[in-house]
Simulated scan of single mutants.
Amino acid sequence: MKSHLYFIHGWGMNRAVWRPIAEKLSHLYDVTLLDLPGYGESIDNLPQTYNLDQISQQVAQNIQQPGIIIGWSLGGLVAQNIALKNKEKTDALITIASTPCFAQKNDWQGIQAHVLTDFQQQLAEDYNKTLERFLAIQAMGSRSARQDIKAFKALLLTYAPPAPAALSGGLQILAEADLTDKIAEIHQPTVRLYGKLDSLVPKAAIDPIHQLQPHSDKYIFNKASHAPFISHPEEFLQVLSQKLSGLT
């Protein structure tokens, strides 16, 4: 019987970003691609309050069988929350370019407040331009950044643009959500994958995260930024496959 894998995308994206990876893994695993509320096939499925707990609960309702939950960026934050609050559905956890707290605060390394504020303002003015900028950040570190951005766009355009409430609510979650005092309670096997050149989850945050959850495993893609599965797909698939084989 195949193990179940559940993939959760990041802010501004949808389940389609996982299709190339899912195709390569589907012969070994039962793969399910999940949309965050307000995105893709869940565009009209918005909670009354768009916060981390509400969207995590909605995503968890689509996990029919226990399995390995794999989340990227904002999706990784959701995956961590599901691992904490829906333990019975989480056999193991893999986060990609994610953290228990995205915002920089006190001694915690993360996204500076003005960056998220700028995104909020730009979002209100022009969604397409905001998405372009976000895609450019995610492709940083790739020798084929332009092609990476085109690949992102082609996949994303298979669905309608996200609901505005999901976009603004997601940025609010990135600015406010903080699971740093809780991830020690994640006792399921955990693997955390990072990009060394990531500007959203900086390298300086990696050791502090692992001090909070010392039993977790980690891998750093030395030449990747925030989206190693797009910028370095072969290396990413090789590493992910190795980590999955150790979890199943």
Rank of each mutant, 00 (worst) to 15 (best):
S3F: 00
S3R: 13
L5D: 07
Y6R: 12
F7P: 08
I8C: 12
H9F: 09
G10A: 13
N14Q: 05
A16T: 13
V17D: 04
V17W: 10
P20E: 01
A22V: 13
E23I: 00
S26T: 14
L28E: 15
Y29M: 12
T32H: 15
T32Q: 13
L33P: 03
L33A: 05
L36K: 01
G38C: 10
I43L: 06
T49V: 09
D53T: 13
Q54G: 05
Q57H: 15
Q57W: 11
V59T: 15
V59W: 12
A60G: 07
N62A: 14
I63P: 07
P66A: 10
G67W: 09
G67Q: 07
I68Q: 01
I69M: 08
I70T: 13
I70M: 04
G76F: 04
V78R: 07
N81W: 08
N81M: 05
I82V: 06
I82H: 13
K85F: 12
K87E: 13
A92K: 09
L93E: 04
L93Y: 04
I94N: 06
T95R: 07
P100T: 00
P100R: 03
P100E: 06
F102E: 11
N106D: 15
Q109W: 05
Q109K: 14
Q112K: 13
A113S: 15
L116W: 09
T117L: 15
D118Q: 08
Q122D: 03
A124T: 14
A124V: 14
D126I: 04
T130E: 00
F134E: 00
I137Q: 07
Q138H: 02
Q138C: 15
A139M: 04
S144D: 11
A145V: 00
D148W: 03
I149A: 02
I149L: 02
K150G: 04
L155M: 15
L156S: 07
L156W: 12
Y159H: 12
A165Y: 03
A165H: 03
A166K: 10
S168H: 15
G169W: 12
G169S: 12
L171Q: 03
L171D: 06
Q172H: 10
I173Y: 11
D178S: 01
D181C: 11
I183V: 09
I183E: 05
A184K: 13
A184R: 06
I186L: 07
I186E: 02
H187T: 15
Q188T: 14
Q188G: 01
P189M: 06
L193V: 00
K196W: 03
K196Q: 14
K196S: 09
L197N: 14
L197A: 15
A205Q: 06
I206V: 12
I206N: 12
D207H: 01
D207K: 11
H210K: 08
Q213K: 02
K218R: 11
S225Q: 10
S225I: 01
A227L: 03
P228K: 08
S231E: 08
P233T: 02
P233S: 01
L240Y: 14
S241D: 02
Q242E: 11
S245N: 11
T248W: 00
